[in-house]
Simulated assay, not measured.
Amino acid sequence: MLNAIIVDDEEFARSSLYFLIQQNCQEIQVVGIAKSVSEARNLLTQHSVDLIFLDIAMPGENGFELIPQVQQSNANVIFTTAYDQYALKAIKANALDYLLKPIDIDELKEAVGKAVKYSTFNKVENNRNESLKNLANDLQDSQAVKKITLPSSQGFRLIDIDDIVHIEADSNYSIFNLINLEKIVVAKVLKDYEEILPENRFVRVHKSSIVNLKFVKEYNSKNGLQVVLNNGEIIIVSRRRASDFFDKIKAYTNFQREI
């Protein structure tokens, strides 16, 4: 049983989420409900909290301003948000999980299941706190997400996006190929990471491949269009994605010349 609090400035959002949890998440006990970050801080001092359902856009202080107190506790955070596109990318990259409003029951169950699983692994605490720091930093930086959180069977790994050479699809899994030749298999589809990673750097060149333009050595049409990476790997570029690839490699090359 995990102790949870709900933090949201909207009464309907608070009550509806509480009802959904009561009806569908028997492993969660809601020990407090707050309508502001200030009230949430008080709840964190009064209760042992394992999980926080945290809204973002609230008057006064937004949800991110609770992060310093969260880092001092042992709580995981599930963001509940209808936030703008950039912030959503940062949340996807670094949060334990997020729920878009209106909240879907199946997505709620999946997020809670992840929280229950992660809570059993004390070793993820430092990584979780670091991921929250990354989230705060990314949201202050209007340029791009810098690190990404990859879930694993025992918690999650924090990866610098500059270390990602390319990502390949394998059914409902994504395989991250890193600069140190390590491969990390993640139980998420490629499209999830296409939406998270900076689109000016990471290009979907095929239904089964995303490449980091930083590691593109050359491209040619010897056997159909293909790109050759710095590590010698050859990635096929599909015809329907070729135009987008050319536009982005040109923009990326021009940007590198300017700096």
Rank of each mutant, 00 (worst) to 15 (best):
I6A: 08
V7E: 02
E11S: 08
E11V: 13
S15L: 14
L17V: 14
Y18M: 09
I21T: 12
I21Q: 09
C25R: 05
C25E: 14
C25I: 11
E27G: 07
V31C: 13
A34T: 04
E39A: 07
R41G: 09
N42F: 05
L43A: 04
Q46K: 12
Q46N: 07
F53S: 05
D55W: 03
I56C: 02
I56R: 00
I56G: 02
A57W: 00
A57Q: 07
M58K: 00
P59D: 10
G60M: 02
G60R: 00
E61S: 05
E61Q: 11
G63T: 04
E65G: 00
I67C: 02
V70N: 03
N76P: 00
N76T: 03
T80S: 13
Y83E: 15
Y86E: 14
L88Y: 10
A90S: 14
A90T: 11
A93N: 01
A93D: 01
L96Q: 00
D97K: 00
L99F: 09
L100R: 06
D104A: 12
D104T: 10
I105Y: 09
I105N: 09
E110N: 12
A111P: 07
G113A: 11
V116G: 08
K117S: 15
T120K: 11
N127Y: 09
N127M: 04
N127F: 08
R128D: 11
N129L: 01
N129P: 00
E130Y: 01
A136N: 03
N137A: 11
N137R: 03
D138I: 01
Q140G: 08
A144K: 13
K146M: 05
K147T: 15
I148L: 01
T149N: 01
L150F: 03
R157F: 12
I159M: 05
I159L: 07
V165Y: 03
S174H: 11
F176N: 04
L178Y: 13
I179L: 12
N180Y: 07
E182R: 08
E182I: 07
E182T: 09
V185K: 14
V186G: 02
A187H: 14
V189G: 10
V189H: 10
L190N: 07
K191E: 15
L197H: 10
R201M: 15
R201E: 15
V203N: 11
H206F: 12
H206A: 09
K207H: 10
I210P: 07
V211G: 03
N212R: 05
F215I: 05
F215A: 06
S221V: 00
S221N: 04
N223A: 00
N223E: 05
V228A: 03
L229E: 10
N230A: 13
G232M: 02
S238M: 03
R239P: 00
R240M: 06
R241D: 14
R241M: 08
F245G: 03
F246G: 01
I249H: 07
Y252P: 10
T253F: 10
N254Y: 08
N254K: 11
N254G: 06
R257A: 15
R257F: 15
E258T: 15
E258L: 10
